[in-house]
């Protein structure tokens, strides 16, 4: 009987674990391995063929000394510090508004807010790209008519134009997660609060907001991870503006190193650093809110 159960566990868990090992653990291990190597060219003019040799942490120090790479990391951090809180606040406010007793046409509004999540990131970027480029964009034209000269693609604004694309795509999705959390609150709690004479604002602030906390934490962590991965938005917008170069975000940088410069080892080191930063930030955030929750 015991043996029987163990076989069942193996059959149920085995296939997933095998693929997980192949597509998650192996690439991480291989990236770490590759990041410790460097390519040495031998013979006159380096024409004698390539050979990979152990390089220690040379790739890491090269990446950390590369101002393009550190600059790209700082850029997405700045992006995250501004965009993630703004988007989460927007999502929570929309969720609370939709869940308030004063809201009308709730299914329509909920669908309208959630709709953009059905648009893939690259398509959303192509779409907003058209809305940013003078000549095609009716928005630029409208603002122009009102006497406002706005360049959405200048070096000062383009990061926030990207933030807008990401917010547009994910605010409704995060809102839906918050709403699902609010729906899980026992109805008796609301009833009790209402009998106590709580007004709509107090209900939202002191009952619903604390209740939505787990969902807010979850969406924030996923948003932080998403921010560090920024890639398709700058890639699609790059041909439209000189303000975006091919090292604009860490991912774009690693992609350029690997496929344009053929520096796979450096790209691997950058991928490892990126994963480390993502884990540090999400664990750090989880610990931070965990500690606050205990108080």
């Amino acid at each position: 009987m015991r043996r029987h159960r163990n076989l069942a566990v193996l059959a149920l868990l085995g296939p997933f674990c095998l693929l997980f090992a192949g597509c998650f653990l192996a690439p991480i291990g291989y990236a770490i391995y590759q990041s410790l190597l460097k390519v040495e060219r031998s013979g006159p003019l380096g024409l004698g063929g390539d050979k990979s040799v152990f390089a220690g942490f040379a790739n890491y120090s090269a990446a950390l000394r590369d101002s393009e790479f550190t600059g790209s990391v700082l850029r997405v951090l700045l992006f995250g510090v501004v965009q993630v809180p703004l988007m989460i606040v927007l999502s929570v406010v929309l969720a609370l508004l939709l869940e308030s007793a004063s809201a009308r046409w709730v299914p329509f509004f909920r669908s309208a807010f959630f709709l953009p999540h059905g648009v893939p990131g690259v398509i959303a970027s192509i779409l907003w790209g058209f809305l940013y480029v003078p000549g095609i964009s009716p928005i630029v034209r409208l603002l122009d008519g009102a006497g406002l000269q706005v360049d959405f693609l200048s070096s000062g604004t383009v990061l926030w134009s990207i933030a807008n694309i990401v917010t547009w795509q994910f605010a409704g999705y995060n809102m839906l997660i918050v709403i699902s959390q609010l729906k899980a609150v026992p109805i008796e709690l609301y009833e009790a609060a209402r009998i106590d004479g709580t007004n709509a604002w107090q209900l939202a602030r002191y009952l619903k907001l604390p209740m939505a906390r787990p969902a807010i934490v979850l969406t924030t962590v996923f948003s932080i991870i998403g921010t560090l991965q920024l890639f398709s938005e700058p890639l699609v917008l790059r041909p439209l503006t000189v303000a975006i170069n091919d090292t604009y975000t860490p991912n774009l940088n690693a992609y350029t190193q690997a496929f344009v410069n053929n520096s796979y080892n450096l790209a691997a080191a950058e991928a490892v650093l990126l994963a480390l930063v993502a884990c540090l930030l999400s664990f750090g955030f989880l610990r931070l809110v965990g500690r606050q929750g205990d108080e």
């Binding site: 674990c17 590759q34 991965q229 890639f231 991912n251 690693a254 690997a258 990126l274 884990c279």
Partner: peptide, 30 residues
Amino acid sequence: FRFPGRETVFNIVLAGVLIPATALALPLYL
């Protein structure tokens, strides 16, 4: 099911949720 290493497996899988997919794509390609 109860089996040795169950929580370890689960925690490793959970850590997988936090790994950026794009950080995996490059080494996966190699």
